[in-house]
Amino acid sequence: WVYLSTLIKILIFFLMVSCCICFQPSFLDFLHRVLISNLQTEIEKQIGYRSSRKRRSEFQYDYEVYHPLEEIRSWMFEMNRTHPHLVDLFSIGQSYEGRPLYVLQLGKRTRPFKKAVWIDCGVHAREWIGPAFCQWFVKEALNSYQHDSSMRRLMNQLNFYIMPVFNVDGYHYSWKTDRFWRKTRSKIPKYHCRGVDANRNWKVKWCDEGASLHPCDDTYCGPFPESEPEVKAVAKFLRKHRKRVKAYISIHAYAQMLLYPYSYKYATIPNFNCVESAAQNAVSALYSAYGVRYRYGPASTTLYVSSGSSIDWAYKNGIPYAFAFELRDTGYYGFLLPETLIHPTCTETMRAVKTIASGLLKKCTK
């Protein structure tokens, strides 16, 4: 009887498993699920074959496709040429491979010492939606200046420093060679690996938790703080203008989050209430566009602990509002966010950034 009972249990178990496999295909999803069936095809949709993609003239610049570095640079010069009363173009230095690090200054020349907002995009090369947003922001700010009273007020009372591509060498490399490249392109002595994570290279708890000392890792912190000329150039500019720059915003992807300090430790920043309120308002404004939900909070607890980050550095150097956006999506497309999603992603992010900027015109007393 004992043997018969055991045999019956075994038969019932195998029958249940067979039923799950035969009649419930979703059972196999626990093992794996294919998100993108042909990765190369998705990459080619974005990189082009650009010769077969419909090209537009400079006067019909397409903000709903991804652009290589050369086209973004030409676009920056065009913005400077066609909007001389609102735009200044300048370089803050050179990259490791000798490319200029261009920044656009947006704002009405009303007085010399206005408050300022810094926005950088493309710190990590493969996050192409970042540079797309920076271009979108400039386009929207300039085109709506005359008819949008809220944007006109921001442009009159604030200056915006926009760096569309922070990691110019890495971004160029992601177009030409490796679509998923993340780091800069500096050479590391005695190693065949190249590049440093530009968001682990800042002089704040450098190369502590969440960063790597190994040059071949994606989170390599570099041989020393500000070893990367790109990081050093931005840090130098922000130190020079720290009395006027009141908000630092860095655009990344992906995760749908709005993060603020600290990244390197589990601790509450002194002006937590003001920053938390600004983040909440920004996420609410973003949600109002298409109903997309963003999480928000300190980077260490909302995402993960990381040392040597730009938002921690900005905050430690006197910029009271330091934010990092992680734009769409949450992992289905990841770094290969389709061009069809550029418009909604940038539209909703524009609302969030405008909300943060508008908050600077009000005094937070919390």
Rank of each mutant, 00 (worst) to 15 (best):
W1A: 15
R179V: 04
Q280I: 05
D29V: 08
Y315G: 00
S227M: 04
P223L: 11
L360R: 05
T6Y: 12
H124A: 09
G318E: 02
K108I: 05
E64N: 11
C134K: 12
W128S: 02
R73N: 06
W175P: 10
L69G: 00
T268D: 06
S288W: 00
N38A: 03
Y49P: 08
R33I: 09
Q135M: 15
C346K: 15
S227K: 07
K243D: 14
L259E: 02
T365L: 06
N201Q: 06
Y63A: 02
R244K: 11
V283A: 08
H32C: 09
G291K: 13
M350P: 00
Y96R: 08
N281R: 14
L341C: 02
K246W: 13
K203G: 03
F323C: 07
F133W: 14
R153S: 09
K205L: 07
P225V: 02
D217W: 10
E230S: 12
N281G: 06
P320D: 07
A299N: 03
E140C: 07
V123D: 07
C207E: 08
H343K: 15
R185T: 08
I311V: 15
G122R: 11
F325Y: 14
E42M: 14
H252T: 03
V275C: 01
Y220P: 01
Q94E: 12
Y254W: 05
H241S: 11
K190Q: 12
N38W: 00
Y315P: 00
R328C: 04
I8G: 03
S95C: 09
H252N: 04
K363M: 12
L4W: 10
S150Q: 08
T41W: 01
